[in-house]
C-alpha cells in the first residue's frame, strides 16, 4: 500500500466536492479516477498531491501523515490538465527544473542534469526538441514534456489530471496506450483522472467510479463493467437501455446483451419492429421498438457475425435478453 485516504471531506463554500471518500492506492498500480464533471475526482487528486487541503479525514502517504508533509517533500509527479509548462523556458529547462531547484547539497552537477534530461527526453521520444519553447511544439508533445518534467524528480507517485483531455481523438488513443506501456516499463504508482470511461477501462488496473462527491465503486475494469454496483455505474460505463419496470427497482440492458431473431424463441423472446439500422464502424446498431413500449431499444450486432443488411426498417423481429441488470432504487447493490 502506498497511499490511503480515509473519509476525506472537502467543501468549497456551500459546495461539497468530496463527502467522506476513502480509497487505497496500491504500490505499482495504475488507477483511474472516473466520473462526470463535478464528481470530485480532480479534487481528490489535488488533495493527494497536496495542492488542496482536506476539511476532514486522513491521508496516509507512504506510512507518513500527509498533513505534516509539505508539498515539496511528498515527491509527487503531477501532470496538469493543460500541462502548465514554463512558457519562458526551453523544453530542456522545463525538464531540468525539478533538478535545478534542489538544495545545493542534493543537486546533481550540470553534466549529470544534462544526461538525466537527455535520458528523459529519449524516454518520452522527444530527442532533438531541447531548444524549442512550449509554444513551438504540438499538444501531444507538450503532454510528454510535462510527463518528462514530472518524472525528473523520480516521484514516488505520478498523478495525472485529465491527461488526454486537451488532445484530438487519434493522439489520445496513441498516448494512452503509450502511457500504459511506460507504466509497465517503469512500474511507478500512477493515478489519473478522466471523465472518459473508455480511457479508464482500457488502461487502468483498477477504476474508482465517482459521482456527486462520493465513490460509487472501486474495482478492475472487468468488475465495474460486468458487475456494476449501482445504477449510476451501470449507466456511466457504456451504453444501456432502460427497461420498463414495476416497483422501486431500475433495470438496464446493454445493447450487445440483446440477440435479434427472425423467429420467436419460446416465451423468452419479445416481438418488435425494426425502426432504424445504422452502421457504426465495424458494428451495426438497430433501433427496435417492442410491442407496447414507447421508446425503441438500442441493439448492437457484432458486424462480423450477423449482417446488418439482413434487417430492414419496418421488419418484424424478436428480441432475446441475454443479461439484464436490476438495481433497487437508492441501494448500492444489484443483481
Amino acid at each position: 500500500m502506498s497511499i490511503e485516504a480515509k473519509q476525506i471531506v472537502k467543501r468549497f463554500g456551500g459546495f461539497t466536492a468530496l463527502d467522506g471518500v476513502s480509497v487505497r492506492i496500491e504500490t505499482g498500480e495504475l488507477m483511474a479516477l472516473l466520473g462526470p464533471s463535478g464528481s470530485g475526482k480532480t479534487t481528490l487528486l489535488r488533495i493527494i498531491a497536496g495542492l488542496e487541503g482536506a476539511d476532514a479525514g486522513t491521508l496516509d502517504f507512504f506510512g507518513q501523515d500527509a498533513t505534516r508533509l509539505a508539498i515539496r517533500d511528498r515527491q509527487v509527479g503531477f501532470v496538469f490538465q493543460h500541462y502548465a509548462l514554463f512558457r519562458h523556458m526551453t523544453i530542456f529547462h522545463n525538464v531540468a527544473f525539478g533538478l535545478q531547484v534542489r538544495p545545493r547539497g542534493t543537486r546533481p552537477d550540470k553534466a549529470a542534469i544534462r544526461d538525466k534530461v537527455r535520458e528523459l527526453l529519449r524516454l518520452v521520444q522527444l530527442e532533438g526538441l531541447e531548444d524549442r519553447y512550449p509554444a513551438q511544439i504540438s499538444g501531444g508533445q507538450r503532454q510528454r514534456v510535462a510527463l518528462a518534467r514530472a518524472l525528473a524528480i523520480e516521484p514516488r507517485v505520478l498523478l495525472l489530471d485529465e491527461p488526454f483531455g486537451a488532445l484530438d481523438a487519434k493522439v489520445r488513443k496513441e498516448l494512452r496506450r503509450w502511457i500504459r506501456k511506460l507504466h509497465d516499463d517503469l512500474g511507478i504508482t500512477t493515478v489519473f483522472v478522466t471523465h472518459d470511461q473508455e480511457e479508464a477501462l482500457e488502461i487502468a488496473d483498477r477504476v474508482v467510479v465517482m459521482n456527486k462527491a462520493r465513490i460509487e465503486q472501486i474495482g478492475t475494469p472487468a468488475e465495474v463493467y460486468n458487475h456494476p454496483a449501482s445504477a449510476f455505474v451501470c449507466g456511466f460505463l457504456g451504453d444501456v437501455n432502460v427497461l420498463p419496470t414495476t416497483g422501486s427497482v431500475s433495470a438496464f440492458i446493454r445493447p450487445h446483451d440483446i440477440d435479434v431473431l427472425k423467429a420467436p424463441d419460446g416465451a423468452e423472446s419479445k416481438a418488435g419492429v425494426v425502426k432504424s439500422v445504422r452502421a457504426v464502424g465495424a458494428a451495426v446498431r438497430l433501433g427496435v421498438l417492442l410491442d407496447g413500449s414507447a421508446e425503441p431499444l438500442e441493439v448492437a450486432l457484432p458486424g462480423g457475425q450477423q449482417d446488418g443488411a439482413a434487417f430492414r426498417p419496418g421488419e418484424g423481429v424478436f428480441l432475446r435478453f441475454r443479461r439484464t441488470q436490476t438495481f433497487a432504487d437508492g441501494a448500492r447493490n444489484g443483481s
Binding site: F80, H82, A84, L85, R87, V101, R102, A150, A152
Partner: peptide
C-alpha cells in the same frame, strides 16, 4: 497560477 503550482510540485521553494 498553474505554473507556480507546477514549480512547487517539482520541489521549488
Amino acid at each position: 497560477s498553474d505554473e507556480e503550482q507546477a514549480a512547487i510540485m517539482l520541489g521549488a521553494s
